[in-house]
Design a protein around this nucleic acid. Structure first.
Length: 508
RNA sequence: GCCGCCAUCGUCUAGUCUGGUCUAGGACAUCAGCUUCUCAAGCUGGAGACUCGGGUUCAAAUCCCGAUGGCGGCGCCA
């Protein structure tokens, strides 16, 4: 007996994207909030693919939805790929079910065929807008006789199926916003299917939620105005009403809907750009929600514990790229060196700085100018990566910030060697001092401590350390900004360090 | 236009339900300093907000009304 009660009260939610485009960051957040809410209540989280728009739905987008959610660690418990007791989980695989309900509505005269042309409807809409009223269908085809309908259908006259909307006040409680009400008289009879075999979003969604025993519908704010329509469909069908929770939208910096104009919007683009899933999750969770304390770093597991759907903000939140970058930098710093190096490898390979040749042990250093290739170990790459851990905001910055370790020749303007008011002569003197001092260190003694001792001794005799250290750093890296020269020299090795100093002297 | 939702630093937000402890707290960004060869990281400090107008009250960011602004919806898209 208790078991049964438990079963009927189990929370069931769903994330129902349509595979008509890349999985948007806003969709990801909707999925995240659903996941957090469900997981903390030990509920079931259904992934449903809403592919009723046959023209725009694509298999590759569906794949991307799976991939994105998996990357972020947002796990669903039922879905098209893993199955479940309430499938199928793709809407186009259950057309017969929608058809059954559609026939029921038609039979009960709760829905009717409409033969109005799109042009006719469009003209009426424009007229209504011009008169300052909310556009709605005038119910013209409602007065069609059974015989006329039969005749039209037989002639294959183009038609849609509309739901009769009764005039009443539709009221519902929203977990995130409280009571919301709307007058259904303003809506007009909505189209719920193009035909018996092609239901529209409103209808299919409502039927799925019922059949999948969804208890909580958590979705974006853009659906608030759709909710009364769906409630009316539920009522016509005699379905149970789920609990609704509408979460605010993610906005672009100008407060408009976030779109491609503002750069990356899909989850996979963020992955490619070198964002960590931890950072994206933490960031997205805090867009519209916060724990009410001053704590700001949360893992997915910690969010499951602390998240409260009732506490989500009501207003839309602007996507603050700088904050995401900050969080990403933070999570990069949290990684162990081995983990970060592992993450760096694909970026180094992609930019042709290294080649992978059968596993970690045989990583090849690849010179982009000479043909020579030499081996470099994972441990050596780790050392290089360690110098950059505090300097990275995104993984995609990896090749650009450490390429000088891998390249045979580095290119930079001579002008860059100049520190403060140094003359060409000063630079040459510094480079000579560097060459002399460093050549004194024997190959076997080439380590950070010795390099530092020798160089600092030399540098103290100059107006300031920069006179020696800046040209050194530039000669070794070719960059205006980088990690410190001692560490770099150590990793580069005696031979290459001296070689680059000599090259710097020859620069025209 | 109509309907709905919303409104605290540039941004994300705490505080609003249960008025006083709020000369409004935190974080990102920004500025200055420390550190320092540069850039990061780290530390210290600064500047920076209750949309406006009416009420209610001894007292309003907090309650009520109105205005304004922003966003969403008004599809044979989802």
């Amino acid at each position: 007996m208790p078991k049964k009660i438990k079963e009927t009260t189990k929370i069931r939610t769903r994330f129902a994207p349509s595979p008509t485009g890349h999985l948007h960051i806003g969709g990801v957040r909707t999925a995240l909030f659903n996941y957090l809410f469900t997981k903390q209540n030990n509920g079931a989280f259904v992934l449903r693919i809403e592919d009723t728009d046959v023209e725009r739905s694509k298999k590759e987008y569906e794949e991307e939805i799976f991939e994105s959610l998996k990357w972020l660690g947002i796990k669903w418990t039922e879905g098209p790929d893993i199955g479940g007791d309430y499938g199928p989980y793709r809407q186009m695989e259950k057309r017969n079910i929608y058809k059954k309900y559609l026939e029921q509505l038609l039979k009960e005269s709760k829905a009717y065929y409409c033969f109005c042309s799109e042009e006719e409807l469009e003209a009426k809409r424009q007229d209504q807008t011009a008169r300052g009223v909310m556009p709605k269908y005038d119910g013209k085809c409602l007065s069609l006789s059974k015989i006329e309908i039969e005749k039209n259908l037989k002639e294959n006259k183009k038609s849609v199926i509309r739901l009769r909307i009764p005039e009443k006040k539709v009221v519902f409680e929203d977990i995130a916003r409280g009571r919301i009400e709307m007058d259904s008289g303003l809506i007009g009879d909505i189209v719920i299917a193009k035909s018996l075999d092609s239901p529209l979003f409103y209808l299919a969604g409502v039927i799925d939620d019922e059949e999948m025993k969804i208890t909580h519908v958590i979705r974006g704010e853009e659906h608030i105005s759709n909710t009364p329509k769906q409630i009316l469909i539920q009522e016509a069908l005699g379905f149970k009403r789920p609990i609704y929770g509408h979460i605010p939208l993610i906005l672009a910096p100008d407060r408009s809907k976030l779109s491609k104009r503002y750069g990356a919007v899909s989850a996979m683009e963020y992955k490619k750009a070198g964002y960590l899933p931890e950072a994206l999750i933490n960031f997205l969770a805090f867009l519209g929600w916060n724990p009410g304390t001053e704590r700001e770093f949360f893992s997915l597991a910690q969010l499951v514990k602390e998240f409260k759907l009732e506490n989500v903000q009501k207003g839309g939140a602007i996507f603050n790229q700088k904050r995401l970058d900050f969080l990403n930098g933070f999570y990069i710093r949290q990684k162990s060196l081995a983990q970060l190096t592992e993450l760096a490898l694909p970026y180094l390979i992609e930019s042709k700085l290294i080649e992978a040749d059968g596993g970690k042990e045989k990583i090849l250093k690849h010179y982009d100018i000479c043909e020579t290739k030499e081996q470099i170990s994972f441990e050596e790459i780790e050392k290089i990566v360690s110098l950059h851990q505090t300097r990275l905001k995104k993984l995609s910055e990896i090749p650009g910030s450490m390429d000088f370790f891998f390249k045979k020749e580095i290119i930079y303007p001579k002008e860059l060697l100049k520190w403060q008011e140094m003359s060409d002569k000063d630079i040459l003197e510094s480079l000579n001092k560097l060459e002399n001092a460093l050549s004194q260190i024997k190959e076997k003694n080439w380590d950070l401590k010795n390099i530092q001792n020798v160089l600092l001794l030399e540098a103290e005799q100059l107006p300031n350390r920069g006179y020696l250290l800046w040209p050194l750093r530039v000669a070794l890296t070719g960059k205006e900004y980088s990690a410190g020269p001692f560490e770099i020299a150590e990793i580069l090795g005696r031979e290459k360090t001296l070689e680059r100093i000599i090259k710097a002297k020859q620069l025209k």
